[in-house]
């Protein structure tokens, strides 16, 4: 049945993200695809997760997906409306956030993320969004999930600017810097990666249906650890795709 089920790479990434969440967890989320992943988890295997938005929103139930954190569509039917100091301070900094979702311009072999700036070939610096709550989540969440497009310019040996720290340059570095947690997985539109327990280098965990390990590696600017046996990412179910299409994102903003 899955072979006839139609879904986009974005939907596959959202489903893979949702499956990383456990029931009862506290999840910090920003905008975009991770929002779809969280609401999908909540409507399937994890009805008791608590979703927090950095600006002071607890567990909203939006009926329209909204254009970003500042869009009141995203705050609809929240259980509490508070503040940064409450969400990022008294929840995140205190150590209560189980999972944070992060995205970015580039991620590297040790899970460090850049959302601040890119250099072009002429040496000119192009500026982007910067941290927002990204650095805070990367520093204090128990684990983070990175969602990023699978392109060689986005998957680098070392990012040009560390906005949100992963495992820095590997083994023990993160702990030395006084940070807790760290990235657990990186989800792209071709594969799911985790991190080697010792070296902290990125490792292929599974590759998505209809792709090959050659295709995965050919579109990265570094060589991750490749295990002898490569798993395949479980395809989305009909129910998951139905929920995304009909309930969570009926307007197709994230497809």
């Amino acid at each position: 049945m899955t072979s006839t089920l139609e879904y986009s790479s974005f939907e596959l990434m959202a489903v893979a993200g949702a499956r990383e969440l456990k029931d009862g967890e506290i999840v910090a989320v920003g905008l975009g695809l991770p929002v779809v992943a969280c609401f999908l988890a909540k409507r399937t295997h994890a009805p008791n997760i608590s979703i927090i938005l950095e600006l002071g929103v607890v567990d909203p139930e939006p009926i329209e997906i909204g254009s970003g954190l500042s869009d009141p569509r995203f705050w609809y039917r929240a259980k509490a409306l508070t503040s940064f100091v409450d969400m990022l301070g008294m929840v995140l900094h205190k150590g209560l956030v189980d999972v944070g979702f992060l995205g970015g311009l580039e991620v590297d072999a040790y899970g460090n993320l850049n959302t601040t700036q890119l250099g072009d070939p002429k040496g000119k610096i192009r500026r982007f969004t910067g941290s927002g709550g990204g650095n805070d989540i990367a520093s204090s969440a128990r684990r983070t999930i990175v969602i990023i497009r699978h392109e060689a310019r986005k998957l680098k040996e070392a990012v040009s600017f560390i906005t949100s720290p992963g495992y820095l340059r590997g083994s023990g570095d993160r702990e030395k810097a006084g940070l807790v947690g760290g990235p657990s997985v990186v989800i792209t539109d071709k594969a799911v990666f985790d991190f080697d327990e010792e070296s902290r280098r990125m490792r292929v965990r599974s590759i998505h249906p209809d792709t090959s390990i050659e295709d995965v590696l050919a579109n990265m600017a570094f060589i991750p650890i490749v295990p002898d046996e490569i798993q395949q990412t479980e395809a989305p179910s009909a129910e998951e795709i139905h929920l995304i299409h009909e309930v969570i994102d009926p307007e197709g903003m994230y497809r």
Partner: peptide
């Protein structure tokens, strides 16, 4: 005091 920013280029 804050835990954020450690290890970053920020």
């Amino acid at each position: 005091p804050i835990r954020s920013l450690q290890g970053s280029d920020i």
